[in-house]
């Protein structure tokens, strides 16, 4: 028996919007720790890892570990029927091939339940090693989204370089080149508007902008985004989900032939 009651149902709606274009089908895993997902895109270039900790739910009952295979497009269709202020409860019985999403309006005057068919998905979990990153950049998520969108109108790939000068996003295409440098800026009043660059070593990596743009669909989840770079590893683009957990996107770099 599984019953997870999320008062801020809009978080789940936003999570789905941020992953449904990257991943078609995925297993949601439910355990005492929380509600989680790990999935790769079909070409195995990007990986998404989501965690919503059990403490973040108003009610969290998960009698045994359960993995529920869902088509994310269908799940998104159902969650779009929930109001932004609705409380969302996810329910499933042991051995059932369906999951139920219950939506309650804040004033309790409207209660809806949507039952969705589950599916069997063969998915392999990958071990994500703890890593020391050469550089970690924290910046406003809207700024990062703007940069990725702007650069993708010029080129297909972005070179992200961190030096003591700041973080540079560069692209080149048929019509020309573009470079955007963001410097550390902690003087702003609001911490979520600051840009903080921690650099152990200079690093420069190339990534496909198509994936970066897809990750920025998570922008409504957090004011800040953290970009962790190391020359031997996929970049990690992390959006913290307030008091609940995170959504992390891993993207494999483009490597010189």
């Amino acid at each position: 028996m599984l019953e997870l009651r999320l008062v801020q149902g809009s978080l789940l709606k936003k999570v789905l919007e941020s992953v449904k274009d990257l991943v078609t089908d995925a297993n949601f895993d439910c355990s005492a720790t929380g509600f989680s997902l790990q999935a790769m895109d079909s070409s195995h270039v990007a990986l998404v890892a989501l965690l919503l900790r059990s403490e973040g739910f108003e009610h969290y009952r998960c009698d045994r570990n359960l993995s529920m295979g869902m088509n994310l497009n269908n799940m998104s269709k159902m969650l779009k029927c929930a109001g932004n202020d609705d409380i969302i409860t996810i329910k499933a019985d042991d051995g059932s091939d369906t999951v139920t999403f219950m939506f309650e309006s804040p004033t309790q005057d409207k209660i809806a339940d949507f039952e969705m068919k589950l599916m069997d998905i063969d998915s392999e979990h990958l071990g994500i090693p703890e890593a020391e990153y050469h550089a970690i950049v924290r910046m406003p998520s809207a700024e990062f989204a703007r940069i990725c969108k702007d650069l993708s109108s010029i080129g297909d790939t972005v070179v992200i370089s961190v030096t003591k000068e700041g973080v540079k996003f560069s692209t080149r295409g048929d019509i020309g080149t573009a470079n955007i440098v963001c410097r550390q800026n902690t003087s702003v009043d609001k911490p979520e508007e600051s840009t903080i660059i921690e650099m152990n070593e200079p690093v420069s990596l190339t990534f496909a902008l198509r994936y970066m743009n897809s990750f920025t669909k998570a922008t409504p989840l957090a004011n800040s985004v953290t970009i962790s770079l190391s020359s031997e590893l996929p970049v990690v683009v992390e959006y913290k989900i307030a008091e609940m957990g995170y959504i992390r996107f891993y993207l494999a770099p483009k490597i010189e032939d």
Binding site: V45, L47, H125, L126, G127, P234, Y250, E256
Partner: peptide, 14 residues
């Protein structure tokens, strides 16, 4: 030119 690598090159299956 640059070649796209994959996640499975870096992270192994559990």
């Amino acid at each position: 030119g640059c070649k796209q690598s994959t996640i499975t090159k870096f992270f192994s299956k559990l």
